[in-house]
Design a protein around this nucleic acid. Structure first.
Lengths: 166, 166
DNA sequence: CTTGGAAAGTCAACAAGGCTGACGTAACTT
DNA sequence: AAGTTACGTCAGCCTTGTTGACTTTCCAAG
């Protein structure tokens, strides 16, 4: 367990104490991460689940319901409840597939785009402030550690989303 | 908005695209972060809320209910429901305060310690793997960005916890 | 000593957002 | 023609969050 590492380097960053700090940092930071969109959503009839759906539809316009299911990692019943309200309220459009008519391709309407922008502006503002405060070096490390923390399957999702659209 | 920065440094890490990647990294990484304890807890009658309570009681033995309320950011009714099951099941002991008998000082029992260890072993294992893969430099950046992302009030909680016990 | 208010606990009711199971329909595939 | 896939939906359940109202305990200030 204490092998394979460059023997010159200190391993103090792997102590249980350091790991605990990292764990608590994740906990508190995630609260901040979701706080702004949550604040915007409360009062509307929507919640975090709607935000996630909107985010990924914006990210990959034309994505199908089952794509979304895979990315979000919830059941179709759960997603459907959310999606239905978004479609009913005219934020999301579900177009029947042309090649495969079983599929529904999801798009944000103008109204949906508007809410998406409001939410992501808020979230990005916090992110931007954090990035700016920490600097590019720190940001690179931040991304590296997060990526290493993901489940392999989720990491593929993440990396797949990184470059290619839809 | 484009001032105050060292003019030689690229600001490409502040583009909306980079921020979006960071946002999605947080989303996917947090899923991984909670996955292992969640797996352990399912089947037992406990959930993530119990894990959080156990974690912070372990972290600050003797902490009071209202301390815990502040840290966790939930209502006392919500916390109480969780705490009650933990006390009833003999994982947590709530000792009446000696100076102020209204207060309950919370401690893990031996059984509680045992579960705490099981949960945090799992969570630390993932964290350790991620830290090791990313290296000390990256970890420093990771912590910096997370800290900058917290709400100021939560950051104080976090920093307070960093050094001093209870 | 009385009283105001803080700390803790409890009951009830509710909502969001997960879950499972079962079922139906349309459409693609073999 | 049969089987599979994609999607939707009904029904019911659980966890974990919320409000509001209320009680008990007990410290501390008047």
């Amino acid at each position: 367990m204490a092998d394979q590492t460059p023997s010159g380097e200190s391993l103090l960053f792997l102590t249980d104490e350091q790991l605990r700090k990292g764990i608590e940092a994740m906990f508190f930071a995630y609260r901040g991460f979701t706080a702004d969109p949550d604040r915007i959503l409360e009062g509307m009839d929507y919640g975090r689940a709607h935000h996630r759906a909107i985010h990924f539809i914006h990210r990959s316009p034309g994505t199908t319901v089952s794509n979304l299911l895979t990315i979000l990692g919830v059941t179709k019943q759960s997603l459907n409840r959310v999606l239905r309200t978004l479609v009913d309220d005219g934020l999301v459009e579900a177009r029947v597939g042309r090649r495969d008519k079983r599929e529904r391709h999801l798009h944000l309407t103008a109204k949906g785009q508007e809410l998406e922008r409001e939410l992501s502006d808020a979230q990005r503002a916090r992110m931007r402030a954090a990035y700016r405060a920490a600097g590019p070096q720190a940001v690179a490390g931040f991304r590296q550690v997060l990526e290493a923390m993901m489940d392999p399957e989720l990491r593929r999702q993440y990396q797949g989303l990184k470059e290619s659209g839809a």
